[in-house]
Design a binder for these strands. Structure first.
Length: 435
RNA sequence: GGCAGGUUGCCCGAGUGGCCAAAGGGAGCUGACUGUAAAUCAGCCGCGCAAGCUACGGGAGUUCGAAUCUCUCACCUGCCA
């Protein structure tokens, strides 16, 4: 994260109504009332909130959907509240797959700090309708069990709570469901009520998996105050090939550069399927309707040029990692996936590129190609590296290596110290020979 | 607490004494075709150059030889208390 404030003034979206824009971008799965929500968003500034539980040391690109949706609503003139779940993170939202392991309060507190910083990056804290960060631990921690049960619990009906999809599934499962996790929906409902009281917050947004929790809040507010407030859920992003969005072979795509490098992050978007790329642009890019329509047309008429993928990768990487890192990654990609003119790449670009891909630093005798592949992590074992060589998938400086015992020489070093090691078409690593 | 069934490689799943590093499927990897795409086709897919080593829930046995048989421990499932 190079700057806490990557986004400049709102760009024209091509829409008069932010609600219409959200629908067009495919961000509206379900609301408490489409017409009522549209009217509210087209009117005076509304305070709304979106929450993130600290279940990991970083947010990931699934959470980014929520952050950018909030920013779009803010750009339309509304006040966002970014909530970090200091209390809900201690309890755990029930998952279909089974009971969560509780994290220690120290761990949760540490993650809260990291996630707060990430949330701050995507909202605007200046201007006429600044964002604000809140932590639900602030109002939950001081509350006594008696207050919780009398003032909040009394408004929740067991039938309703038990009918929740996740709850019903878990109760029917072998593992069952703890009272702790069962209570989660009450806590989240309470958050909305509290934010309504403190800030007149009237809208909560979240992923479609949060729908029950969102409604838990609107219902609580109606019962306690008689006021109708809104909730909006975004759909789960899908991939055309049916696999889960947001994962690579090596796992979740995180926003934290120490968990997912800018290079890996960029490649993730660059590799988007033609069938998915326009939908992703609508969700993750701030380009307006006219531009996105042009990119959609480009994908259809000139798919090989992959203009939409380039725009998507550049836009999202810039948002998350900053313009500087993105420029480096683009230079890197152009050089390393180019036509083998590696010698023409200047050392600074090469060094930055390989730095993103991963570098193994060596001194002394150069090892053979299979050892290099194994030590850079391109192959999990020497045997796998040998197989790759036998299959014709091993390259040094864009030259295919057919002998597993091939040892590069000093003459092969680019700029006197670099080797570009590639497995297959996409997996790259750098080797830097010191001394 | 009793009785019955189960625990196999990243996942699912076959295998009931040697021909088992373990069928088949999925995932993954590589090549061809391409566009750092999709689809398709082909090969690969425990570790090791190899000899060999490790592996079928943990441990102990029987046997020339065990994923397969015996004992035991742990966990899961179903039925009965």
């Amino acid at each position: 994260m190079t700057s806490p404030q990557p986004m400049t003034a709102p760009v024209p979206t091509g829409f008069d109504s932010v609600y219409d824009e959200l629908v067009w971008r495919g961000l509206v799965q379900q609301t408490t009332g489409d017409e009522a929500l549209k009217t509210a968003l087209d009117g005076d500034p509304v305070t709304f909130y979106v929450g993130f539980d600290p279940t990991a040391p970083s947010l990931h690109i699934g959470n980014l959907v929520q952050l950018l949706t909030a920013r779009r609503i803010q750009n339309a003139g509304h006040h966002p509240l970014g909530l970090v779940g200091g209390s809900t993170g201690l309890i755990g939202d029930p998952k279909m797959s089974g009971e969560r392991v509780l994290n220690t309060p120290e761990t949760v507190a540490a993650w809260v700090d990291k996630i707060r910083v990430q949330v701050e990056r995507y909202l605007d804290f200046g201007g006429n309708h600044p964002a604000r960060i809140v932590n639900n631990l602030d109002w939950t921690a001081p509350m006594s069990a008696i207050e919780f049960l009398r003032d909040v619990g009394k408004h929740f009906r067991m039938g309703r709570m038990l009918s929740r999809d996740t709850v019903a599934t878990r109760l029917a499962s072998d593992e069952g469901l703890s009272f702790t996790e069962f209570s989660y929906q009450i806590l989240q409902g309470m958050d909305f009520l509290e934010l309504f009281r403190r800030y007149d917050c009237r809208l909560q947004t979240g992923g479609s998996d949060q729908w029950g929790n969102l409604v838990s809040g609107t219902e609580l507010i109606r019962k306690v105050t008689g006021t109708e407030v809104h909730a909006m859920a975004t759909p789960l992003l899908t991939k055309a090939d049916g696999t889960k969005f947001g994962k690579t072979e090596s796992g979740t795509v995180w926003l934290d550069p120490s968990l997912t490098s800018a290079w890996t992050f960029f490649q993730f978007w660059m590799n988007a399927d033609d069938r998915d790329v326009v939908r992703y642009l609508k969700v993750f890019s701030f380009r307006g309707r006219a531009e996105l329509t042009a990119l959609e047309e480009a994908t259809q008429s000139r798919p090989h040029a992959r203009e939409a993928q380039r725009a998507l990768a550049a836009d999202v990487t810039t948002l998350v990692h900053g313009a500087h890192a993105t420029a480096g990654v683009i230079a890197a990609s152009t050089a390393l996936f180019g036509r083998g003119e590696l010698s023409t790449v200047d050392e600074a670009t090469l060094s930055a590129a390989l730095g993103e891909a991963g570098v193994l630093t060596l001194a002394g005798e150069l090892p053979s190609v299979v050892h290099l592949m194994q030590r850079t992590g391109l192959a999990a074992s020497l045997g796998e590296a040998r197989r790759t060589v036998a299959e014709g998938g091993a390259n040094i400086n864009n030259v295919r290596i057919n002998d597993p015992d091939h040892v590069p020489t000093r003459d092969d070093l680019l700029h006197g110290q670099w080797l570009v090691l590639r497995r297959g078409k996409r997996s790259l690593a750098g080797v830097r020979v010191a001394g």
